[in-house]
Amino acid sequence: MEYSKWAFWPGCVSKGAAPELYLATNRVAKELGIELVELDQATCTGAGVIQEQNPEMADALNARTFALAQQLGLPLMNICSTCQGIESMVQDKLTKRPEYLAKVNAILADEGLHYTPGLVIKNFLWLLVEDFGLDRLKKMVTRPLTGLRVGPFYGCYILRPSSILGKEEHPDRDHYLEMVIEAVGATVVDYEGSKKCCGFPILTINRENSLTQAGNHIHEAQDLGADALVSPCPLCHLNLDAQQPAAKQVTGHDIDLPIIHLPQLIGLAIGVPPKEMRMDHHVVSTKKLLEKLAAAPVRA
């Protein structure tokens, strides 16, 4: 079943250090006719960090988010690979352990909430391919990104562990970014780092390692002629964009590569003005990218 109306969990970063993602998501969803109902009382998924000391707290908070979506009778959309992975993990655990789920539900009952396994949870990337459809997207493309070379950057948790990420039903999920890049008329840059770690989770713990990871991936893609990287994960965006100058310093690689959010890529192709997606608010300037695009022909 394909859905056109979703409960929307924006995550922490789109409400904090990456406001352009929040803006672009809402703008593009509106343009695509995807209705979003924001869950303004849902909490952080824990991002795997709370899980280091209190997995039960993270389970309960995520179950609460699921229940909030179910209260609206809607499937749940996120815009973060990490959110997707954690939500899938918790969902898997609660489904496999009904006794544990019953205890979690007893806590949620205090505010009249209840989670029943089976909620559809999708990152915007999955929704775009599986529910909206790439053929439909192609028909909406007014400004094909012809000539633009774009490298995919997935973010670990939307890829791994594959056993809990619905790959049996949707075996191509690990190729969706490439499919989307092609659907909007751009050329895929195939590089090794696209499915590796951006290093963000250890930025404050081991800065050198974290920035070396980010710097290496950017350098590899840039070396292969990429004009930009696109990611469905704002955490990756933080390390690849906001930390890029620092990564340049640590690795010594001469890097200068715009990093764009997935909704921004879609927005560009369907004619949303870059300013309305705050593309002038990145740390690494998107100017060169937009100039290259402006020089390309527009489809009438």
């Binding site: 795997g48 992975g85 670990c156 948790y157 890829l159 791994r160 562990p161 590796k196 770690c197 290093g199 963000f200 989770p201 250890i202 713990i205 081991n206 390692n209 974290s210 990871q213």
Partner: peptide, 8 residues
């Protein structure tokens, strides 16, 4: 603490 939790 040096693991990035990348799930690889």
């Amino acid at each position: 603490w040096d693991c990035t939790r990348c799930n690889m």
